[in-house]
Design a protein around this nucleic acid. Structure first.
Length: 115
RNA sequence: ACGGCAGGUCGGGUUGUCGCACCGCGCCUUAGAUGGCCGGUGAGGAAAGUCCGGGCUCCACAGAGCAUGGCACCGGGUAACACCCGGGCUCGGCGCGUUGUCAUGACGUGCGGAGACAGAAAGUGCCACAGAAACCAUACCGCCCCGCUUCGGUGGGGUAAGGGUGAAAUGGUGGGGUAAGAGCCCACCGGCCGCGGGGUAACCCGCGGUGCAGCGGCAAACCUUGCCAGGAGCAAAGCCAAGCAGCGGACGGGUUGCUCGCUCAAUGUCCGUGGGUAGGCUGCGCGGAACGCAGCGGCAACGCUGUGUCCAGAUAAAUGACAGCCCAGGAGACGCUCCUGCGGGAGUUUCUCUGGACCGAACCCGGCUUACAGACCUGCCGUUCGU
RNA sequence: UUCCCGGUGGUGUAAUGGUAGCACCGCAGAUUCUGGCUCUGCUGGUGGGGGUUCAAGUCCUCCCCGGGAAG
């Protein structure tokens, strides 16, 4: 399976994002929060966001990119048909630790097919 | 060699795997830039703060003035500026020379530095406390003269040199003069006025006159003078499809044969128009105040000419993840070399560990300001070593 | 992205350019058998740097922090 993460697999419209934030189910662990809701499509869409408390634009951009990278690499195991919003909180975590956070939160939501 | 100051340049590189965005009249595919392949490109010196100045867009606009805001030595640069360059003046620093003092100094000159540097003889206002007095008048302690005196002082007058107050006290220093004093008089310095010379100008130099009652400070207080500014900002603005609110028109039942009128129900259906917001496209990055190199002009900022290059375009917002090697830098270990005051210090091969700051384009430029690990270059200063 | 406000002790607020006050809180003492109330005293502040001025919380300028508006 491909490991890409194209424009269609990202949440881009303001209306869709507001919808997930207001009506989605919430899951969280230390360092990460997730909201998701069904989108009626055959594939999933994702958005990674870092709050103001992380720091300045450089640090927030970097956290967001790491989050996108993690989702890209574990995408093959995630159920389709959902919109995800990940909120990445600050903390001194390695790439592997961040990856475990994503897997745990998705597991709590019962949206992992294998593993 | 080390350290400091000032100015300038740069601000990690490279390989592999996976991944992202844009571009190509590239190729395949598809109803269709739908998907794929190939190739190219992909953050900064500050992209930051949003403090100035422009371009660009729309609105307003006959012309002029007022208000408001900004700027303010002079000349140049520039599209423009509160920026830059050169010059002047003032201030303070260091060095040198002359002169003087018990001492601090004064003057001249050189170097490098700072300055929002128009006007306080147009007017208004403020200058707390202290002080006699803070700008229009004058005297607290004093000094001097005259009178009285119980010899302690006291009354009248002159004076502003000395003391005192204060951030600031009516030009400064020295001499003459005087009852004591005072630009009262003189010399020098300062100020003002006039003339001459130099300079585009700011300003400078020289000569002469004037005792200087026009003369304190504050304009980042009001203000005056001169100059410059119409307002908003790419979320500007334009276009596209859809068509919500609204607007216009058409379409009902009953009463009667029909029309008007009245009444009832529906507050609907269809057509047209359609502001704003949301969506898409343009604006938006191949031709510009662009960048590199060379030549010429200019003290310089900068300009001109020639030649070459095309160099990010995202939009909940593209440059990432992992691994390896190299390059700077830091720490440690075993050795080796040199110096030694025998405590140690300096340099270096190899190995190990560590390790790259400030920070993310959002219409685009020119500046300013602020943040910043480290490296390199140039100049000056200091210390040490060698010649 | 653009624009606009604000910052004074721990908290809430005053201050024509001229000694930074007031209230609550805190601390100490007095009063009380003890605590509270009350009384007396004290600690502690102009967000930071630079400039103008004799003198700056106030005027000018550059940063820092906080809040708000437009869509």
């Amino acid at each position: 399976m491909r490991k890409s993460l194209t424009r269609h697999e990202r949440l881009r419209r303001r209306q869709d994002i507001e919808n997930v934030f207001h009506h989605g189910s919430a899951y969280r662990c230390r360092g990460l929060a997730m909201k998701c809701s069904e989108n009626g499509l055959s594939w999933s869409r994702v958005l990674v966001v870092s709050p103001r408390s992380v720091g300045k634009a450089v640090r927030r951009n970097r956290l967001r990119r790491i989050g996108k990278e993690i989702f890209r690499t574990i995408k093959y195991a995630v159920c389709g048909g959902y919109d995800f919003v990940f909120v990445v909180y600050p903390g001194d975590y390695s790439f592997g630790a961040r990856r475990q956070q994503f897997i745990r939160v998705l597991g709590d939501a019962n949206l992992l097919t294998i593993l």
